[in-house]
Design a protein around this nucleic acid. Structure first.
Lengths: 207, 207, 207, 207
DNA sequence: GATGAATGAGATTTCATTCAT
DNA sequence: TATGAATGAAATCTCATTCAT
């Protein structure tokens, strides 16, 4: 269909996105291995050759998808609060946003993150990207906690690194459970509870 | 109708276990899809036919593995504390045991649990078994928290169901992160931190 | 179960028959290739080893079954009429008996005969046995027709060999159609019609 | 959606035919079950994938083969005589053509028809196609016989349906015997004999 | 002898990738 | 450049047959 003598950069980006979108839909619904290139061809309404023109292999497509997925997320978190907020407020806002991201969106996004997680130990670039995001998020959280301790908001006997890790694990676990559990539970209630627990658990006693 | 099994029940159990062990090793190392029946044949030192005599398909073998995996776990948790322990002590012991189970053992077990989790939405019996374990663990934790509230140990404004879910998610997330992250971090330190957070977060103020 | 110190000849015959019966049931229902030895084991309520004790291979079992099948049939035909019957009467009785054998019995027997027929070109002993029965039946019929011609009952311009072949083909075709057609048709009506056609077709004109 | 087939419809038809031809050759020579897809691959000089691109399974290939086989046959019969021919002439021409089709061609075609017949009770579409052809042929013959009776050519006491069935069975049986019997016999002589028998058996007596 | 667990060659089918057009 | 037919290695699974007990 395209008649453009030289395919514009923008057009190429659009096609690339179309492929990634198709892959995301299918990988999250059926998993990486149960999705065939033929299905991606069909879903994207492109041709085999076209897809291989943009990605050299199925794995490369998968890796590119992870890249796209992770790009936004941390920036998103950082933009949710003002530097002048108290540490407690910051954490509460983060919890709020993280929950919304997890529970508020479809299970699709959580499912595909799981795909990346399982694939990680077996696909080098997936592993390193996961590690990178993991470390960044961890540092991000630990810094806030450290800040809270320094400001006297949080208890002195809290280890910022460990506490950050706990928060991170809770978020990851929530995403995991939300994506893989079919039981009905009022997941939305959780945000408040987490905020409360975090607050009480971390807060320096008012005494 | 067969008049007498030519081999003892015990022998068959042993062979079955040998197969499950081989599958567990490989599935946790390479993942379900990247493990071929041929490899399981080789690892188990049996023959194709033998394996298919015990399990009708690769999927059934996977499901049986999950069954075996989950059998012990909850019982194990329950046996770690005495009924007369305080709710706080119970939770602390549970955290201790759960951590030991996750971090103390090899990543192998966590990896394979992840395999089950990812497979869950796509394999019926895996899903239902996961759901069952999930609900049982949730009820188990919620009951302890409820008990703590009733006894005045824990704060009244905590919702036992949500709090239990948070604990569960934390455990699941920890297992996930531990299994998929190659970063070095002093994971063992975490147990204490979690115990502390839990305690402070849940405890009724001494006032 | 058998306690006999020496397994009697009769016992062995019974077991052999049990196996053949099981094989016949399954081969006629599901075909030779779609029947596994395991199924024959199950149907016969014997063991693998037992069956291989009586038949060295699946093919040998198949051949033995054909043998048993064909044993009775021609003798049966011959016993249906008296030597002093007219040729016409003989043929009519044969038609009657043949029809009863085909339509009167279940499709099972016809189906298994078909199995033998398809297998014939590929299994030597099945072929030679089929040929033998074919020739014998052909000679048998041709002799009666020849007798009828000689006695002046049948027209002189009939070629006994060809006519016998036609009769034989009709019988075989009827068996084939009966076994493989699911359409409802009053098959029983056919016997009279065939008798009439045979009579009129072969009979010397009364002139 | 595909903008333009890269190969012509005709090309695809040719490849399809090549596969069917290879399958026909092998199925008729070795039977459906004794022919492996590998052999069809070799015979067709294509690849596994190519064949599965045209037929989704071995069974589907078999069914497609039957379809192709049956397509022409009845039309062929109908075109052999003129509407103004007498019923007797029509039947004689049919017999002639049928014989030529059966005996004149190689046993290959008959063998593969037998394959279809045996498979019929076990493969739904094969059964229904066989039934359809069977019914059509039967009606076709019965109509001619009925016409002959109405015109006074044939005897009134003949039941057209039964007589047609007998003719059909004879043809089917002849095909069966021809395909499966290795005995030498002057099969070509049969046509005349059948024509004669049919004539005499059906014809109204000149009285 | 009888048993049925074990064997392993071989069958069918899938699917990431290539490349002629 | 874009297309999708073709490739073929590799996966899962079957089953006639053997043989240790």
């Amino acid at each position: 269909m395209p008649m453009s003598p030289k395919v514009s950069q923008q057009y190429k980006q659009e096609v690339r996105d179309k492929i990634l979108e198709a892959a995301e839909t299918l990988f999250s619904k059926k998993g990486y291995y149960d999705t065939s290139m033929d299905e991606i061809v069909e879903e994207s309404r492109l041709s085999k050759g076209a897809i291989y023109g943009y990605f050299r292999s199925k794995e490369e497509l998968f890796v590119a998808l992870q890249e796209r997925q992770l790009e936004a997320s941390l920036e998103q978190l950082k933009s949710t609060f003002a530097p002048e907020d108290s540490a407690r407020t910051k954490l509460e806002k983060i919890v709020e946003v993280a929950f919304t991201a997890i529970i508020g969106t479809s299970k699709k996004a959580c499912r595909i993150n799981l795909e990346f997680d399982v694939a990680a130990p077996r696909i080098r670039p997936v592993q390193s990207r996961r590690d990178k995001r993991f470390r960044a998020t961890h540092v991000f959280l630990a810094d806030i906690i450290r800040e809270g301790i320094n400001k006297g908001e949080f208890r002195r006997d809290v280890d910022p690194d460990s506490a950050a890790m706990v928060l991170l694990a809770t978020a990851d676990g929530l995403s995991l459970d939300w994506a893989t559990t079919t039981l009905d539970f009022d997941w939305k209630l959780l945000a408040d509870q987490v905020k409360k627990l975090v607050a009480e658990g971390l807060l320096a006693s008012p005494a």
